[in-house]
Design a protein around this nucleic acid. Sequence first.
DNA 1: TTTTACTTTAAAATCGTTCTAAACTACTTG
DNA 2: CAAGTAGTTTAGAACGATTTTAAAGTAAAA
Lengths: 132, 132
Amino acid sequence: MNNKEKLRKAGLRPTKQRMIIADILLDGINRHFTAEILQNEINSSGNSMSIATIYNCLKKFRNCGLIKQIESSKDTAIFDTNINQHHHFLDEETGELIDIENDEVNLRKLPEIPQGYLNNGVEVLIKIKKQI
Amino acid sequence: MNNKEKLRKAGLRPTKQRMIIADILLDGINRHFTAEILQNEINSSGNSMSIATIYNCLKKFRNCGLIKQIESSKDTAIFDTNINQHHHFLDEETGELIDIENDEVNLRKLPEIPQGYLNNGVEVLIKIKKQI
DNA sequence: TTTTACTTTAAAATCGTTCTAAACTACTTG
DNA sequence: CAAGTAGTTTAGAACGATTTTAAAGTAAAA
Ligand SMILES: [Mn+2]
Ligand SMILES: [Mn+2]
Ligand SMILES: [Zn+2]
Ligand SMILES: [Zn+2]
């Protein structure tokens, strides 16, 4: 399935801008990135795009499940092209995130979900620190 | 140990402002809060304080281990008076966080820490969603 | 082809947070 | 106690990420 079809299937109009972003993000390679990093890649690809459009697209892509947004306390939103359930190492000093595939983690015991709620995904974050 | 002693032991001068915050935060009750929520509580207690001072104090308290800051992708920093290692439920709709005590979670298998790094704490986040 | 709804954009606005620099205060030393 | 000094508080400005605005542009529908 090509990117135009992926966008259509997600219910998004395949505009020029969304296609440029899809060509960069939906290449099957897993990466973590910010809006600014993406803008640099767009520029490097010979295109250019308003930062508002980049944020608009990222929000649409996220809401459609084409990308994920990572729960981390950085001021800057970090997105992830790995949409499979998985986990992360986080170097709090640098903010660097490293994927942990889902089968690398196994939970023996989980708490009961609060009344009236459903489990909507478990994320394990392993904070790491450079050895001195 | 009273709050003045706690601050001294943490290496912090017990200023008027830090004592006001300590009286609110260090009462043994576990809660999650933002700088703005704390400012409202300070105001309700009949005191007032510059927002810069509140941020200064929270940073000092965090660095001394008197409180923790939670890894969340919200724009607003969330602090936690529960300084024991523990985990959270997160309602992504509302941003509400609920504590999970450490012994409620048990990991059967953890991935190998990357070369040159040390494990600096494991956090489990269980995303939850209101039942419809 | 015309109409409609959706999208993009530059620029302004917003919002949480940090910085600045001057006034203030806790602690130290004499 | 009386300076001295190092750390702290503050209002307001600045900052940086993100969102809003409103006008122009484009994709899809009729
Ligand atoms: Mn923040
Ligand atoms: Mn943010
Ligand atoms: Zn990832
Ligand atoms: Zn907590």
